Simulated assay, not measured.
Amino acid sequence: MYKIAVLGDYDSIYGFAALGLDTYPVKNPEEAKETFLRLAEEKAGIIYITEACAAVLKHEIDRYKEQLVPAVIQIPGVNGNTGAGIDGVKKSVEQAVGSDILFGDN
C-alpha cells in the first residue's frame, strides 16, 4: 500500500498529521532534496510538497513527472501562494483533456 507524504517547512505542514498523513518537515534545500528522493524511492504514492520547497527541487521533481508514482502535488505554504500549484494542476488537466478547462481554447 502506498503512503501519502507531506513535505515542506514545519509551520506549513504540521496540520496534515491530524489527517493521518505522514509529514516530513525540512529546514533547508539539502534536507528537502534528500527527503524527497528517499520518499520517491520508497514508493510514496502521493507527495504533497509546499510551493517554496518545490521551487528548489524543480529538477528532482521533473525526474518523476512522467511516472505514475509518486504523484507530486504542490500546496501553498504559510508564506502564501505563488500560484505554482494551480498552474501545475491546470497543465496536467490540459494535457489530459486537450484544452484549458478554466478558460477554454482561444
Rank of each mutant, 00 (worst) to 15 (best):
Y2N: 09
A5I: 04
L7H: 03
D9S: 06
Y10Q: 11
Y10K: 15
Y14H: 09
Y14L: 12
A17H: 04
A18V: 00
G20I: 01
D22G: 04
T23H: 02
Y24V: 00
Y24F: 07
Y24K: 00
K27A: 05
N28S: 08
N28R: 09
N28E: 02
P29R: 04
E30G: 11
E31M: 13
A32F: 05
A32Q: 06
A32I: 02
K33P: 03
E34D: 13
E34W: 10
T35N: 04
F36N: 09
L37H: 08
R38A: 15
L39K: 06
A40V: 06
E41W: 00
E41Q: 13
E41L: 13
E42L: 12
K43I: 03
K43V: 02
A44K: 01
I47L: 01
I49C: 08
T50A: 11
E51V: 00
E51G: 03
E51S: 05
A52R: 06
C53F: 06
A54P: 04
A55C: 00
K58D: 14
K58G: 10
K58P: 11
H59R: 14
E60Q: 14
E60D: 13
I61Q: 12
K65E: 09
E66A: 14
E66G: 05
E66I: 07
Q67K: 15
Q67H: 13
Q67M: 12
Q67L: 15
L68G: 15
P70V: 05
P70E: 08
V72W: 03
V72F: 09
Q74S: 11
P76Q: 01
G77C: 03
V78R: 09
V78K: 03
V78L: 11
N79D: 04
N81G: 08
N81H: 08
T82V: 03
T82S: 15
T82N: 10
G83K: 05
D87Q: 12
D87C: 00
G88A: 11
V89Q: 01
K90F: 12
V93I: 10
V93M: 14
E94A: 04
E94S: 08
S99T: 14
S99P: 00
I101T: 11
I101A: 11
L102H: 10
F103Q: 15
G104M: 13
D105Q: 14
